[in-house]
Amino acid sequence: MLNKRSKADSVKKRHLITHSSADSIISDQFRTIRTNIKFLSEEKRKRTFLVTSPGIGEGKSTTTANLAVSVAQQKDKVLLVDTNLREPIIHRIFKISNEVGLTDILTEKATFDEAIHKTGIGKLDILTSGSAVSSPAEVLGNEIMAKLLNGVKTAYDMVLIDSPTILKSTETRLLANQCDGVILVVNRGKTILEKAVEARKILKLSRSDLVGVIINEKG
């Protein structure tokens, strides 16, 4: 039992640097990003932000998780939603159950209150991806998802949505159009310039508002 707990703690520490090492340089960089996003939230009334990347392995989910923690440390009420229904990872980063989550709400098998996770990190709540579904794009594109996004806007100071890669996932394009802004995460060593440009074009075609780009040094 002790070994399992130690392993879990090490995983959480490695991924959630803003929680485990609040005084680190990386945490300070996330505070800068947090400040910029909060400026957009307050000045332009933007509250829901979708975080995506051109490809896989660019550190998108880890970035989203750390950003959510950083915002919550300012005593803001934050909701982190995992919409990567094919390969969810947010529940692993925070070491929480994924038995009930977003898909269960969208298929009317559970209520929002039944699916939400209280992290104990400030006022950070998490909505994991939930039960596996055969058609992620159809589930995320239904009216219940649109109503859910509209509802959480009034309940939270900021909503961060971790989504699949923009270049391969139809559902990401659908969600991007429904959010107030999109944040693109690219990896300095992995992202090919052409893919980053293509991702920007797709966001423009989907009439999404690209509000910023986060450059990751590591995956």
Rank of each mutant, 00 (worst) to 15 (best):
H19Q: 12
S20L: 11
G212R: 09
R45P: 00
K168N: 14
N150R: 15
K109R: 14
S41H: 14
V81S: 05
D76F: 11
D113Y: 13
K123W: 04
H19A: 10
I166T: 03
V51N: 02
T83R: 04
A8T: 08
L50V: 08
I215D: 07
L124K: 01
N150Q: 15
I56Y: 13
M1Q: 14
T128V: 08
S97Y: 10
I56M: 14
T64M: 07
D76W: 05
R92V: 01
K123E: 12
L85D: 02
E198W: 06
T154F: 10
T32E: 09
M158N: 06
G212Q: 10
H15F: 04
T119C: 06
L193W: 12
A155H: 12
L140P: 02
I89W: 01
S24H: 11
T103H: 04
E217I: 02
T32H: 09
I93C: 01
E43H: 14
Y156E: 05
L16R: 00
C179K: 05
S135E: 13
F49K: 08
L140F: 12
E143K: 11
S129F: 03
L175Q: 03
S53N: 14
S163H: 08
K77F: 06
T52A: 14
H15K: 05
R14S: 12
I90F: 03
V185R: 02
L85W: 06
L160R: 05
V133D: 07
F94D: 00
V139Y: 06
L2R: 14
S27Q: 04
F39G: 13
K123G: 03
I183D: 01
K7M: 12
E108W: 03
S129N: 06
I26H: 06
T103W: 02
R207W: 00
R5D: 11
T48M: 07
L50Q: 06
I161V: 15
N216A: 12
T170H: 09
A110P: 02
L148Y: 07
T48G: 06
K75Q: 15
V69E: 00
R173V: 04
N98R: 04
K77C: 08
Q74K: 14
K13R: 13
I89C: 03
R47T: 11
R188K: 15
T62F: 01
E58D: 11
G151H: 09
M145A: 09
K4W: 07
H19D: 08
I33G: 03
L16V: 00
A115G: 08
R47Y: 11
S97E: 14
D76E: 13
L80I: 02
N187Q: 15
F49R: 08
R86M: 11
R86V: 10
R14H: 11
K12A: 06
F94M: 02
G151P: 00
R92I: 03
I166L: 14
S70M: 03
E171F: 08
T62Y: 01
T63F: 09
K44E: 15
I96H: 04
V139C: 09
N216W: 10
S169A: 15
F30C: 01
D28A: 10
N36I: 11
T103V: 04
L80Q: 00
S27H: 02
D125R: 01
G189Y: 14
K13V: 02
F112H: 06
I183Q: 04
Y156G: 04
C179F: 07
A155D: 13
F30P: 00
A65D: 00
A196K: 09
L140T: 05
L175C: 09
A68N: 03
R200H: 10
N150K: 15
S24G: 10
V78T: 02
S20W: 12
N142G: 12
E87Y: 13
